[in-house]
Amino acid sequence: MLLATPIRLIEKIGFESIYITRLTGSMIIFLVHCLGNIFILPIRFTAVLRQIYFIGARSLLVIIVTGMFTGMVLALLAYYNLKQYGNMELIGAATALGLIQELGPVLAALMVIGRAGSAMTAELGIMRNSEQIDALECMGIDPYRFLITPKFIATIFSLPLLTCVFDVVGICGGYLVAVINNDVPSGAFIQGMITNVDWADLRLGLVKPLTFSVIIVWICSYKGFYVHQNRSGVFGAEGVSLVTTNAVVMSSVSVLALDYVVGLIML
């Protein structure tokens, strides 16, 4: 009887390890399958276009608004902190570097998770629950190629572009706050930005959204596609809501963790 608790604990650890190994394995198979499908012709152009519309074009507004405010607050903080040293030309550099290296990629990714990633999971989950995925299978149509590959292509294409929009809008916001509101010389802002931003910063700002996009579409579509295999065993509407929450949390955390890893490797 005394041994029961430690044995149960070991059992629990074993159970968890098996679960995690299985999950990782099945997720990696899923990823390889989907990435492989990207290069199989013909590409479903209409479906990809629809997804780019949904993931990219429809996210523009939220990206522009958040980008604007992020740039503004960055410039404001830079102004108040740099004022003490009289180094006004660094405001442009601080705003641009902050946006390009870090905030642009991360915030754009989080916005896309919230807007498109959650919708992706819910859509696939509902399709699974209402047997639409089985129906595709029974019509002899590969559901991966039909449903998921267009989402992969569209996300990998859209997120870097959205990040660029975010960066530039943010820089404009920073310019407004610094130059128009706080009388920093316009030339100092722009010149400071140009001299301090290097090609290496831009490369980092491009690699990040590319890796994030794969992570986002991977986790979000996996969770939705396999809604019926979720761990808690809930199904129906509750199952969809559960996996959607899971997907959003898991992809957000993964993006932030990956952000550090990419930074570590590339800087």
Binding site: L49, L60, D167, I194, D198
Partner: peptide, 27 residues
């Protein structure tokens, strides 16, 4: 909605901002 038009606008905006970043800032 006119999907082609919206996607076109999105892609143009994306490419313009990307080239601004690489040409002006990345020198």
């Amino acid at each position: 909605p006119n999907i082609e038009l919206m996607v076109g606008l999105f892609v143009i905006l994306g490419i313009v901002t990307a080239s601004y970043l690489s040409v002006v800032l990345g020198e």
